[in-house]
Amino acid sequence: MHYQWDFSVISDNAGLLLWGLGNTLLLTLIAILIGTPLGLAVALMRLSSRRSLAWPATVYVEVFRAAPALVQLYWLYFALPRLTGLRLGGFEAAAIALSILSSAFLSEVFRGGIASIGKGQWDAARGIGLGYPRMLRTIILPQAIRRMLPVFLERYIELLKTSTIAATVSFGDLLFVAQDISYRTYRTLEIFSAIAVMFFLVILLCSQLTRLVEHRLARSGEFTAR
């Protein structure tokens, strides 16, 4: 019970830890940038009245939501090369797995958001002759996204945390770097406390940013969609 804390290991390896954090953020950002538009596309397919569009999208969501992230990643990293000879690096495999995973989850957020917009808004948009793409872009999605903003943030934070699975396929993210340092220095407690704080700070920053955006949106026009 007389553990001697020694945080010098953190300052000694600060550069390496920040590099790992940078990689974690990069991986998460890529998964967000690919997963969000892909999720929207899947949501629109699921909402389509055409069964040939809705059905594959439903299968996609159900399959990729059900499979654990780690299983998807291992499949891409270990099974795919065996099947196709196509060998992915740890970063590529993780980026693809996380993009697909987030698109499956985000499509449900989009779908819920779009479905929450009342019939009157669609009627009014159709009533002035707007086409479907235009009414989505200017009438439906701006309202749906505003309403869903907190849920999007929650999903993005979840994604940031899930991105640590990339360490298992030797991608140098924050978790991988932390493991590496702790193997070398045996300062596991200090290092994992430090990266817990780093995750906490990043996530805190994100929530504050979203709050700011929400506040600005609320000021620019209140939401009383019927």
């Binding site: 159709r126 002035i128 200017t138």
Partner: peptide, 30 residues
């Protein structure tokens, strides 16, 4: 629909747009 105006019981204005933007949307897009 562009040639037929409709006014609803619940107004159905677009809440994220100003009055002016509401009136401009169809003119611009259609």
């Amino acid at each position: 629909r562009a040639h037929i105006g409709i006014v609803f019981q619940q107004f159905n204005l677009f809440p994220h747009m100003t009055a002016l933007e509401n009136i401009m949307e169809g003119q611009r897009a259609v």
